[in-house]
Nucleic acid binder design. Structure first.
Lengths: 135, 135
DNA sequence: GGTATTATGGACATACGTGTCCATAATCCA
DNA sequence: TGGATTATGGACACGTATGTCCATAATACC
């Protein structure tokens, strides 16, 4: 389904974190239980997000994870990029890896362009605050 | 990138076939060379498309592949479905496998819905004739 | 300082997509 | 009928995503 499982895990975790911020750091295992993802796997995802500057992690008692910034200033692309790699931003449909500019665009460009634009706009313009739900 | 490599191979092959129909059947190895896909791999893809009723295959001398119907009556979803499986039609973003109806839609529904609708419309409404290029 | 607690990291297992190689079946033509 | 030609199918190889398990490092609290 378009986004990899790791990306969805990451979005779910960050969105849940945004919807339940209360000053305290949230434990990795609690977060895993809440978003229904294997704890040992989610820990890798969370570490990646911390390295990417989306979350801050702290160890020891009272440790856990927090958002590095307000949810309204975290865009989906930042959450997803480490897991999607270059595949995050789609290119030409029939010629993968091809830029598919207007001049010399491939034959599928008119139909595919609408999907491509909607998708990239979704990742680049939507913030966590817009998908977090809760309140 | 959203669609699997096999799906893109299939689309490229069918589109090329549509753009170069001339009454003759096209050999699998020629098709593979034209769309730049490994011949031994494309043959599996083409067999799947034949089983799915998108192409007709014939063996022996003068054999090869043809479109089973005019390109204007082959929708992209038919070409892609055997390779994408249930993943072909996207569902809820944060709750994979969830229908995400309007009532009780997940929190990401407003933003994600636009992408989802554009994508499913692309697959279900676009025909091979619209992406085949050539003349 | 010592101990419990938490995140971090490495090694490993598994499934699947992609791709290769080769034997076999079906078809055409001489 | 026999051989050449073509699609079909099975077995295998390989990389990557996903997931599990366990040791280690960092931190807070007593």
């Amino acid at each position: 389904m378009i986004l990899s499982a790791s990306s969805v895990h990451a979005l779910r975790a960050v969105a849940w974190l945004a919807a339940h911020e209360n000053g305290e750091a949230m434990l990795g295992r609690d977060l895993a239980r809440q978003v229904n993802v294997p704890a040992d796997y989610l820990s890798k995802v969370l570490a990646t997000l911390a390295r990417g500057g989306v979350l801050t992690a702290s160890r020891g008692v009272k440790g856990g994870y927090r958002l590095a910034r307000p949810a309204s200033r975290i865009r989906l692309i930042e959450v997803v990029l480490p897991f999607e790699g270059k595949r995050a931003i789609p290119g030409c449909l029939l010629r993968p890896g091809h830029p598919c500019r207007e001049s010399g665009a491939c034959s599928a460009h008119p139909a595919w362009g609408r999907v491509k634009d909607a998708y990239t706009a979704f990742l680049e313009k939507t913030t966590i605050a817009q998908i977090k739900g809760g309140s």
